[in-house]
Amino acid sequence: MKQAKLIEEKIFKSLSGIATYSLIAILAFIIVVIFVKGFNALSFDMITKTPKGGYYYGGEGGVLNAIIGSLYIALGATLIAVLIGVPAALFINVHLVRHKKTQTTVRYFLDALWGIPSIVYGAFGFTLMLYLGMNASLLAGIITVALLIAPIVVRTFDEVLSKIPIGMQESVLAMGSTKTETAFKIMLKQGFPGLITAILLAFGRGIGDAASVLFTAGYTDLIPVNLDEPAATLPLAIFFQLSSPIPEVRERAYAAAAILTIIILIISLSARALSRRYSKTIIK
């Protein structure tokens, strides 16, 4: 009997270990493949020049258009998502604290929004764009991606806020703070490390998403200088250039993938560092 338990323990431990480490191995494998493939193309030109002779057929130049376009869209969308998401998450945790049922319902809808596939956001953004008489543009891309990532900001931040003990809120209210002061002066501060995680998670999703910008931001060889101009993005740079018959163009796709991966890695590392830094003042 005891022997059987011991064997069971051993088998389960190895299986769980394999599951864990194989995930890490897959991540390592992805990074290796992307970098090996993109390495030849990953030149200085790649990050300083736009494609020459068209992104599909021209072999020269780089993907600066997509880097800039992606950063514009992800930054703009994150900004909007934070402006909407932060008050929303605070509202759920301070003003709705008395209304548990509403709180649960709101969270349920936000979770549903989070789960909607990005291509659906893309289609919705496209419809909205046509309805408003806009063209595929930086602005349309920003709005669509903002819709896509706003639920991420709200729910991730909300998750952290909801862990703050109610006693803390009580003692702040007991001092005579209004709910708004409690939310924006204290809860925001206490939840700040979580907010950073939320922002960077949302930014990462925004910069990496192809489907939502496919119809809304369009694609171009140029760097957009106005909100109503189309914008290239890194995910679409990978998508379009990978199908090109020209080998140099295909290499550019891998370079774009490498750049995107680097950006995402930088974001997740800085998320950890920043949120640790801002954890110093919070009350445990």
């Binding site: 003990p165 006693g167 003692s171 702040v172 001092m175 005579g176 204290i186 003042t281 009350i283």
Partner: peptide
């Protein structure tokens, strides 16, 4: 809020504010 400013509350577990 004005009403509560007339009273101080000490709870079982102290909750200082997340600041200096």
């Amino acid at each position: 809020a004005d009403l509560r400013q007339k009273m101080g509350l000490l709870s079982q577990r102290p909750y200082p504010l997340p600041m200096s």
